[in-house]
Computed example of a mutant assay.
Amino acid sequence: MARSRFLPDRGLTVRMVATMALLGVVYVAFVIGLVLAGLSVWLVLLIVAGFALVQYFASDKLALYSMGAREVTPHEAPQLHAIVDRLCAMADMPKPKVAIARTDVPNAFATGRDEKRAVVCATTGILRRLEPVELEAVLAHELSHVAHRDVMVMTIAGFLGVVAGFLTQAGLRFAAFGAAGRGNRDNNPALVALLVVAVSAVVWVVSFLLTRALSRYRELSADRAAAFLTGRPSALGSALTKISGDMARVPTRDLRQAEPFNAFFFTPAFAHGQGGLAALFSTHPPIERRLTQLAEISRGLGSGA
């Protein structure tokens, strides 16, 4: 991880390395499977490389654009910049770009493949609802993602699922419409399309589960790092409780628009249950688990903060 004053997390580092290694194996199997299914090896490599380049080099711009966010100057958002300046000085890390997304969904996220290109974004909804000390705790959480480099890992890890999802949809459409157009005269292209769908679907499920497991752990790690950096775990707990409670008052349409960014948000726009498969598919641990951890840290600090 980056050399900052954020609490080191060896568990997070091990999980990121293990996830990337497992996804690397899945990636190789994915390419081999598509070639065996009948696709040209050059076509497969072109598709995968194209998605990878876009995801790696443009993920920050795409995220900001999709959220309707824009970078703001210290003159435009003096309080927000002051908090980020103070946290970066405390953490001894480079200051990222600062952005604001104009949406009432109360949230924040970090994006960018490294510290030099990192962006920390807060929504107008969270700026309106939180007290300065609560906002500082949330932004410390987001900056810890940058310092631990897990934003980059999640970006890279996510691209394989994007490719698999794209090929699954393309294969299904080709099999449905292509086969219907030719009748029963030549089913070979349709069979190839179905094989591509089968391989892509398996890869999507595996990559989905791996990245979701990593996402849940990284959120707990960021909570810990932010709590120790600021020395105020209760401020983070208060922000978490306030945001989760106010999320129910946000129009469903706005929440649906923000839902694709759940994995990068401070707290999910939609929480799909707590147990069973819902917990397995969740991008974040249950709020009760996060609040319990923060309470334990507060007791450990002995400050009641």
Rank of each mutant, 00 (worst) to 15 (best):
residue 229 L to A: 12
residue 230 T to M: 06
residue 230 T to H: 09
residue 230 T to K: 07
residue 230 T to N: 12
residue 230 T to V: 08
residue 231 G to P: 11
residue 233 P to S: 00
residue 234 S to W: 05
residue 235 A to L: 04
residue 236 L to D: 08
residue 237 G to R: 05
residue 238 S to D: 12
residue 238 S to R: 13
residue 239 A to Y: 08
residue 239 A to R: 11
residue 239 A to M: 10
residue 240 L to D: 07
residue 240 L to V: 10
residue 241 T to V: 05
residue 241 T to A: 14
residue 242 K to I: 05
residue 243 I to K: 05
residue 243 I to P: 12
residue 244 S to L: 02
residue 244 S to T: 14
residue 244 S to Y: 04
residue 246 D to N: 09
residue 247 M to E: 11
residue 247 M to R: 10
residue 247 M to S: 08
residue 248 A to G: 04
residue 248 A to Y: 03
residue 249 R to L: 14
residue 249 R to Y: 10
residue 250 V to A: 11
residue 250 V to Y: 06
residue 251 P to Q: 05
residue 252 T to N: 05
residue 252 T to M: 14
residue 252 T to W: 05
residue 253 R to H: 04
residue 254 D to P: 00
residue 254 D to A: 10
residue 255 L to Y: 01
residue 256 R to D: 06
residue 256 R to V: 07
residue 256 R to Q: 09
residue 257 Q to R: 15
residue 257 Q to V: 14
residue 257 Q to I: 06
residue 259 E to C: 02
residue 259 E to F: 07
residue 259 E to H: 13
residue 259 E to I: 03
residue 261 F to V: 02
residue 262 N to L: 03
residue 262 N to S: 15
residue 263 A to W: 00
residue 263 A to Q: 12
residue 264 F to R: 08
residue 265 F to R: 04
residue 265 F to V: 03
residue 265 F to C: 07
residue 266 F to T: 11
residue 266 F to Y: 15
residue 266 F to N: 08
residue 266 F to G: 14
